[in-house]
Computed example of a mutant assay.
Amino acid sequence: MSENQPPYGGAPGGQPGPYGQNPYDQNPYEQVAQPYGQVPAYPGGGQQDVNAYGQVPTGMPPLAHWGWRVLSALIDGLVVGIPQVAVTYGVNRPAGSLVALIGLVVLAYVEGTKGQTPGKMAVGTHTLREADGQVLGFWRALGRRLAHLIDTLACFVGYLWPLWDDKRQTFADKIASSVVIKP
């Protein structure tokens, strides 16, 4: 091996390689030590919120009990289901499926823009973004509605998950980063 040729394919003469810095010029053990007990800063800046891990963030309204969620889902099911059944048996099956699809989109729109469906309005609950407490928006609300299909897998365990979850979230809530509150 010659004097100008560094080991392992680096650039000759200690110059940067084709991908930027010369890796042999960096000291991998040089790090800033944190004092014991001090929480390191978030990668995006600011201090880490210790309460955000597995606990309800501070300042959030009380989470809705599972019973309120079930009652609001039953009401929403009636709001969409009664017209769907009427059209399915009164007109035909494809028209009933179209009514169900329209109902899904309308519920997602109302929930995404107002935070409440008709069932949630009746029981007084709201669906909000977990991070900042704002309404979900249409696309996130529609994604949450579609993600409820995952809740039905494995014998509807996803719908039962709020019974023992710290944030009372279904799998769909976890995917959409949403919480259901009862102020």
Score class of each variant (00 low, 15 high):
Met1Ser: 11
Ser2Arg: 03
Pro6Glu: 03
Pro7Leu: 15
Gly10Tyr: 14
Gly10Leu: 12
Gly13Met: 14
Gln15Pro: 04
Pro16Ile: 01
Gly20Pro: 08
Gly20His: 11
Asn22Val: 14
Pro23Thr: 07
Tyr24Gln: 06
Asp25Met: 07
Asp25Arg: 14
Asn27Ser: 12
Tyr29Pro: 11
Glu30Cys: 10
Gln31Trp: 00
Gln31Arg: 02
Val32Tyr: 10
Ala33Leu: 12
Ala33Arg: 12
Gly37Arg: 10
Gln38Lys: 09
Gln38Trp: 14
Val39Ile: 15
Pro40Asn: 05
Ala41Pro: 01
Ala41Leu: 04
Ala41Glu: 02
Ala41Ser: 11
Tyr42Phe: 01
Pro43Gly: 10
Asp49Glu: 12
Val50His: 15
Val50Met: 09
Ala52Trp: 13
Ala52Met: 04
Tyr53Pro: 01
Tyr53Leu: 11
Gln55Met: 14
Pro57Ser: 04
Pro57Trp: 04
Thr58Tyr: 02
Met60Thr: 11
Pro61Ile: 15
Ala64Asp: 09
Trp66Glu: 00
Ala73Asp: 03
Leu74Met: 13
Asp76Thr: 13
Val79Glu: 00
Ile82Gln: 06
Pro83Val: 07
Val85Tyr: 12
Val85Asn: 10
Val87His: 10
Thr88Leu: 09
Thr88Met: 09
Tyr89Leu: 02
Tyr89Gly: 00
Val91Thr: 01
Val91Ile: 09
Asn92Ser: 09
Ser97Pro: 00
Ser97Gln: 07
Leu98Arg: 07
Gly103Ile: 07
Gly103Pro: 06
Leu104Pro: 02
Val105Tyr: 04
Val106Ser: 01
Val106Asn: 02
Val106Asp: 00
Tyr109Met: 11
Gly112Ala: 05
Gly112Leu: 04
Thr113Phe: 13
Gln116His: 01
Gln116Arg: 05
Thr117Arg: 10
Pro118Glu: 00
Gly119Pro: 03
Gly119Lys: 05
Lys120Ala: 15
Lys120Arg: 08
His126Ala: 13
His126Cys: 12
Arg129Thr: 05
Asp132Val: 13
Gly133Arg: 06
Val135Gly: 04
Gly137Asp: 08
Phe138Thr: 02
Phe138Gly: 06
Ala141Arg: 05
Leu142Gln: 07
Leu142Ile: 10
Gly143His: 02
Arg145Tyr: 03
Arg145Asp: 05
Arg145Ala: 02
Asp151Glu: 15
Asp151Phe: 10
Leu153Lys: 09
Ala154Ser: 04
Cys155Ile: 06
Val157Gly: 00
Leu160Ala: 14
Trp161Asn: 06
Asp165Thr: 04
Asp165Cys: 06
Thr170Asp: 01
Phe171Gln: 13
Asp173Val: 03
Lys174Tyr: 05
Ile175Pro: 10
Ile175Val: 09
Ala176His: 15
Ala176Pro: 14
Ser178Tyr: 12
Pro183Phe: 10
